[in-house]
């Protein structure tokens, strides 16, 4: 397995497919969708795409600091919200038929953002 995670998952095409499913899951989840409410859904969707590219181990310009500032203004963001989003990510990958080994690699990358997202 010389290819990196991003290529194994399917590269940009996989991110495109995933972002639609993922963003819909997030928006339909009443426990978290208030954090994603915005008039500018296109910009929000682009952010989700960046995040997925990052979780897929792809080329990205996401830094821990970005993660921190992006989430700093979100009042009441807690552990439960973080796991809800992580759950949607996992479900999205499974829906797309990503093999279990790759799913857990991506989940590990996503988990690495925990402290920055929650501002710990």
């Amino acid at each position: 397995m010389s290819e990196n995670l991003f290529d194994r998952i399917g590269g940009n095409a996989a991110v495109d497919a995933a972002v639609d499913i993922f963003y819909k899951k997030v928006l339909s989840d009443d426990s978290i969708n208030r954090f994603f409410e915005t008039t500018n859904m296109d910009a929000q969707r682009e952010k989700q795409k960046k995040f997925l590219t990052f979780a897929f181990g792809g080329p990205n310009d996401y830094s821990g600091k970005d993660m921190r500032t992006a989430h700093a203004g979100l009042d009441g963001l807690n552990e439960a919200h973080f796991s809800a989003v992580a759950g949607h990510l996992e479900a999205t990958l499974e829906e797309l038929g990503v093999p279990a080994a790759e799913v857990s690699e991506a989940m590990a990358i996503a988990a690495s953002t925990h402290d920055d997202v929650l501002g710990l």
């Binding site: 819909k24 928006l27 339909s28 969708n33 409410e37 915005t38 008039t39 859904m41």
Partner: peptide, 9 residues
């Protein structure tokens, strides 16, 4: 705003 989200969903 609300309807845009719903239309997307």
């Amino acid at each position: 705003k609300k309807t845009k989200t719903k239309a997307y969903l």
